[in-house]
Simulated assay, not measured.
Amino acid sequence: MSYLPCVEIEPEQPANRAIIWLHGLGADGNDFAPLVPHLTLPDSAQVRFIFPHAPKIPVTINGGMVMPAWYDITDMAIDRKVDTNQLSASAARVTDLIARENERGIASEHIVIAGFSQGGAVAYEAALSHPERLAGLLVLSSYLATAPSIKLHPANQDIPVMIQHGRQDPVVAERLGQQAQAWIMDRGYKVEYQAFDMQHQVCPEQIQEISRWLTKVLA
């Protein structure tokens, strides 16, 4: 099987946990790899970090420029006009990576799916529709693009969900993160939501909270 190319960071001991972390529009798998040394995780969680590279495709809102993207965005109203077929195809590639981790000895219940911005929209789709329980879903500065079409799977009805957003985000307005939180909570999911005084980025205080949350869900 052909998998998405990835940056992989192995733990000191044989991996018993995994985090698949998706970057945003125009970035690549190297974008979040520098965060790994700053995440404080328990020694019992030997985590393999997997940072996939999105394919390079034309992006309409950027004048058709070819760049790494999980799906095309056709209008600045990004929560309404996205190529959901491409998004779903990207989510399926994430599912393939989960299956590869299963083959490498890590059960789905020990795998976290994380994503920033565009990657967060794919993470929602991949995690909430996955047919085996996952360890958690971490969504940063993103939105739920496939609310009308996503097929929620009961296996992950009680998955821990952490949503984080910047209060001054000019790219993905915080109301979109709040809308995603409300949508999934209305369907019975337990969601932890945090907002930070930042724009479309990651801040030190947020990294501390990510460490705390990952320590809990990867225990």
Score class of each variant (00 low, 15 high):
Glu109Ser: 06
Arg93Glu: 09
Gly63Tyr: 11
Asn156Trp: 08
Lys81Gly: 08
Ile150Pro: 03
Glu192Asn: 12
His200Gly: 10
Ile106Lys: 01
Ala180Asn: 05
Trp70Glu: 05
Met198Ser: 04
Ile163Asp: 03
Trp183Phe: 10
Ala77Asn: 10
Ile113His: 02
Lys190Ile: 10
Ser142Asn: 01
Met162Phe: 15
Ser117Val: 12
Gln164Glu: 10
Tyr193Arg: 14
Val172Ile: 14
Glu192Phe: 03
Gln86Asp: 15
His165Trp: 05
Ile159Ser: 03
Arg100Tyr: 15
Glu192Trp: 04
Val191Lys: 05
Tyr193Ser: 12
Ile111His: 00
Lys81Gln: 15
Lys190Pro: 10
Trp183Met: 14
Leu176Pro: 04
Ser90Tyr: 06
Arg167Glu: 08
Met67Lys: 10
His153Cys: 11
Leu138Asp: 03
His165Ser: 10
Val59Gly: 04
Glu132Met: 07
His130Gln: 11
Arg133Ser: 00
His130Lys: 14
Val59Cys: 07
Val122Tyr: 02
Leu128Gln: 01
Tyr143Pro: 01
Gly177Val: 07
His110Thr: 00
Pro131Met: 03
Gly177Ser: 06
Ser108His: 11
Ala195Asp: 03
Met198Trp: 02
Ala89Cys: 13
Arg93Ile: 11
His110Glu: 05
Leu87Asp: 08
Gly64His: 04
Val191Cys: 02
Gln178Asn: 13
Ser117Met: 07
Arg133His: 08
Arg187Asn: 12
Asn102Lys: 01
Gly119Cys: 05
Ala155Lys: 08
Ile73Val: 10
Leu87Trp: 01
Ala135Ile: 14
Thr74Ser: 11
Ser108Lys: 03
Arg187Thr: 12
Met198Asp: 14
Ile106Met: 05
Lys81Arg: 15
Trp183Ala: 13
Ile150Asn: 04
Gln157Trp: 10
Ala92Tyr: 14
Ile98Pro: 00
Asp75Thr: 12
Asp79Ser: 13
Ala127Pro: 00
Gln179His: 09
Leu152Pro: 02
Ser88Glu: 15
Val172Thr: 15
Ala182Asp: 15
Ser141Leu: 05
Leu176Cys: 06
Phe116Gly: 01
Ile57Met: 11
Ser129Asn: 05
Arg133Phe: 13
Val172Ser: 06
Val122Leu: 06
Gln181Met: 11
Val112Phe: 00
Ala135Gln: 01
Met67Asp: 03
Ser108Thr: 00
Ile113Asp: 02
Glu101Trp: 15
Val161Glu: 04
Trp183His: 10
Leu144Phe: 12
Arg187Gly: 14
Cys203Thr: 11
Leu152Val: 09
Trp183Glu: 11
Gly64Val: 05
Ile57Phe: 02
Ile113Val: 13
Gly63Thr: 12
Gln168Leu: 14
